[in-house]
Design a binder for these strands. Sequence first.
DNA 1: ATCGCCTCCTGCGCGC
DNA 2: TGCGCGCAGGAGGCGA
Length: 262
Amino acid sequence: MLRGITPHCLDKRIHHVELRNRRLRWPITRSLPRYLKDQKFIRISRRAKYLLFETVNGGFLLHLGMSGSLRVTGVGQEFLKHDHVEIQFTDGKVLRFNDPRRFGCLLWSSKDLSDHPRLRGLGVEPLTGDFSASYLKSCFKDRKMSIKQALMDQKIVVGVGNIYVSEVLFKCGIHPVRRCGRISVQRLNRLVESVKIILADAITSGGTTIRDFLDAKSKPGYFSQQLAVYGRENLPCIRCKSLVRRVVISGRSTFYCPKCQK
DNA sequence: ATCGCCTCCTGCGCGC
DNA sequence: TGCGCGCAGGAGGCGA
């Protein structure tokens, strides 16, 4: 994602910004076109599920929600349904933000973006050394919530969504309703390993490649045929053939094998 | 402090 | 064939 966008947008003069629909999760500031005109993005980075676009005078956080996507195309190309923002560069390229469900957001701030309230208090990045069994042990100490909820808590670790949490817990053999504070360090080690493998896998197989950004609509980054348990209620577990169960935890479907996961 | 539940929105798949 | 309903997801925010 980041690598696909950056070469087309970094250090390019912004010629014009078109706001076609401001009503996302939070309204996009009306002033965005004025703020960005004649500026350049001097840094484009990522934190958790946010992309950070910075100019010398401020910048914005962009969250894709679950249905959002970014495209790089040429000026004058036909708009797609749900293209909400277009940023035109002086070289004739444009960046478009499309989000059918409008769960995403674009938040302008004139202050240091890394200090933004939306980023404050976020947990560690899962694919770094900060995410470890000892880290989880300290987070989970005296906590009663289920391991499923704990893994999806962005204040603990970022990037684990509802689909992948089922996959992770299946892979390491932990029951989704198990209390997080009552898991041995040995099992936490397996859990950490599973998170890293599942997420790295997801990025490789479903993550958007650089090529996808040029005039192609990118699809959500997961493919149901590669999911081991998610969505497989009453189908045989791929490991032991027991029937996969579905439970609702904090309002979200959760899938697990009653025999493989304890 | 911590946790459970509701909410936003659109597209899709299902059943009638 | 067509319509309408219910569900799916990330994460803030509120009430208990």
